[in-house]
Design a protein around this nucleic acid. Structure first.
Length: 92
DNA sequence: GTTGAGCGTT
C-alpha cells in the first residue's frame, strides 16, 4: 500500500471523486480530501491510500494533468507533520 | 488556495 498526495485540487472535489479517479488504476483503500477543520472548506488537496503498483501508475498518469482547470500535483505523500500542542500557551 | 486529526487518554 502506498499513500499518495494529490494537490491543487478544485475546491469542488470530494472524497468520492478523488477515490473514483484513482480507482481506475487500482484498488483504492482510502481516499480523503482534506478540509480545514475550522472553516469546513476544502484545502485543495487530499490523500489516497492504494495498492503500490496502482499508486505508481496513478502518479504517472495523473501528475501534471489538467483537471477542471487545475493542474494536478500527484506524488507519494510525506509522513504527517507533527503538530505542536495547541492548548499550550507560550510562556516566558 | 499545495502534505490530513484530535481538543486531555488511543
Amino acid at each position: 500500500m502506498t499513500r499518495i498526495y494529490c494537490g491543487n485540487l478544485p475546491f469542488s472535489t470530494n472524497d468520492d471523486e478523488l477515490r473514483d479517479m484513482f480507482e481506475e488504476f487500482g484498488s483504492v483503500n482510502e481516499a480523503t480530501v482534506v478540509s480545514d477543520r475550522e472553516t469546513g472548506r476544502s484545502r485543495g488537496f487530499g490523500f489516497v491510500d492504494m495498492d503500490t503498483d496502482g499508486a505508481t501508475k496513478a502518479i504517472e498518469a495523473l501528475d501534471g494533468i489538467d483537471y477542471k482547470g487545475r493542474t494536478l500535483k500527484v506524488n507519494v505523500a510525506r509522513p504527517r507533520e507533527e503538530r505542536p500542542p495547541r492548548n499550550n500557551r507560550r510562556r516566558y
